[in-house]
Simulated scan of single mutants.
Amino acid sequence: MDFSAFAYKIFQESIDKYHVKNDVYQPFANPYAKDDIARLLYRKNWIDTVQWHYEDIIRDPDIEPKAALNLKRKIDASNQDRTDLVEFIDSYFLEKYSAVDVKEDATINTESPAWAIDRLSILALKIYHMQEEAERTDASAEHINKCSDKLNVLLEQRKDLSTAIDQLLADIESGSKYMKVYKQMKMYNDEELNPVLRKAP
């Protein structure tokens, strides 16, 4: 099985499990072992799935300001967790391909494997929710048709992105491409870099 198909299967498991309760405050349990890359993929998608629903909730026009602020902070924390998980996944690939003999004319990709896989995780969520919309029984025929068309585009995008991910991994494994990981230098959570936090007592 190609890595993209393997990852997508894990993402679907996470999404399906979340929607059993469909509650952003439900407890999280990872079914995979600590030394299994599936554990990182499952956790990564769970973070994305919870944040997807955070983003729905915060757009409620009647949300109380205090609740909105609390939720905004949860979204910020979720974004940091998401970034951390992407970096952990890239570390897995760095270790996996550490012994590859990189060719002299090897090139670097515009993004690392894990950031491409991050996009696949988000795409899995888009497909899940667009399929929900396309299958609604309480919506107009026009709505169903529009969502069905969008779903077809998303499915094509999944095919293209999966192909690109698997090709990138094959190129890295063969030494035709090499990968570098630049840690995300987020500034807004850092007391030394965020001037607002720096001024705080």
Score class of each variant (00 low, 15 high):
I122G: 09
P65D: 04
M1Q: 09
A200N: 08
A106T: 13
T137R: 11
Q51S: 11
T83R: 13
R59P: 00
Y42S: 02
L71F: 10
K34M: 12
M179T: 04
E135N: 15
A134W: 14
P113Y: 03
I10A: 02
H53L: 03
D35C: 02
V102D: 03
L71I: 09
P113C: 06
R82F: 15
T107F: 05
V86N: 13
N70Q: 14
Y42N: 01
K146Q: 13
D16P: 00
N30Q: 06
Q80W: 09
A124M: 10
A134S: 15
M130C: 10
K44Y: 15
L120S: 01
R59T: 08
D190E: 08
D48E: 12
M187N: 07
N79I: 03
A67E: 13
Y188H: 07
Q12E: 07
Y25M: 07
A141R: 10
D160T: 14
H53G: 00
M187K: 09
S78I: 01
I15A: 05
I172M: 02
L155S: 05
C147K: 13
F3P: 01
K126F: 12
S98P: 02
R119G: 01
L71E: 09
V153N: 11
L161Y: 08
K21L: 14
A77I: 08
Y182E: 15
S162A: 15
E111W: 07
E133C: 07
K146H: 12
A164D: 12
K177T: 11
A164Q: 14
K199S: 11
K17L: 12
R136K: 14
V100W: 08
R198G: 00
V24P: 06
E132W: 15
A139S: 14
I117Y: 07
D62I: 02
R59W: 01
D16G: 00
R82W: 14
Y178V: 03
A38Y: 00
S148R: 12
N79K: 08
D76T: 10
T137E: 15
K17C: 06
R136N: 09
R158M: 11
H143W: 08
P61C: 07
K146S: 10
V24R: 07
V196G: 06
E173V: 02
A164L: 13
F88W: 11
L41F: 04
N22I: 04
V196K: 12
F93V: 05
